[in-house]
Amino acid sequence: MFRNIYLTISGAITLLSIWMIFIWVPTEVNQGLVQRILYVHVPFAWASMVAIIAVAITSLMFLVTKKIFWDNLSQSLAEVGVVSAIVMLFSGIVWAKPVWGVWWTGEAKLTTALILFLIYCAYLVFRNYFPPGDARNRIAAIIALIGAIDSPIIYYAAQIWQQNHPQAVVGPLATQDSSLSSEMVITLLTCVLAVTLMFVGIVWVQYKTVSRKGLKNVQIS
């Protein structure tokens, strides 16, 4: 019952946000049509950021409480988070080319996002390579924590690096900043809501799959 209501609401908001992106919201003056990538890029960046913080928190909770619930949850969050990060990185790359004139720059936030994405890929690879059991779950949680500790250092390093490397930005956004009109803000918020609902839904489904897989192992052994 709850599932159906959730699906209906989330689907309706997604449809609404698609209508808003393509029909309702006015085109931005400086960047043109391509600016509409914002409505995909920002929500997914938000989702992947939430996922990364949530993985760190659930991993810590797992280490403290040793309840398998937290471990399964952090695995599903990491999986969905990595997919969101792929959408974020790809939409960002496609957007940067027409706007900044380059596909990629050494900007601090970009570098940090890329490296965090790689760390969480490694986290998932580890979960698949290591023999399953308590030791694996505990070490996976430790890896997630180390990634979380590392991220401010990466951001700091990327910022120092940025300081003496002039940005290769030549596109329309190079000289002026654009501000969002109220319609754009409304559209963006709707999209964030739609993606968040979708994110929570997928994590929920994924959590069920992951914990059922754990159950299957019980029956075999």
Partner: peptide
């Protein structure tokens, strides 16, 4: 950690390199 798993060379590189990126930049 990775010595206890399958394909330990790959796993070690995957885990190690992104974590030490700040050091590599330095």
């Amino acid at each position: 950690i990775s010595s206890k798993s399958r394909s330990n060379e790959i796993l070690l590189t995957l885990l190690l390199v992104p974590i030490v990126i700040p050091l590599i930049m330095f």
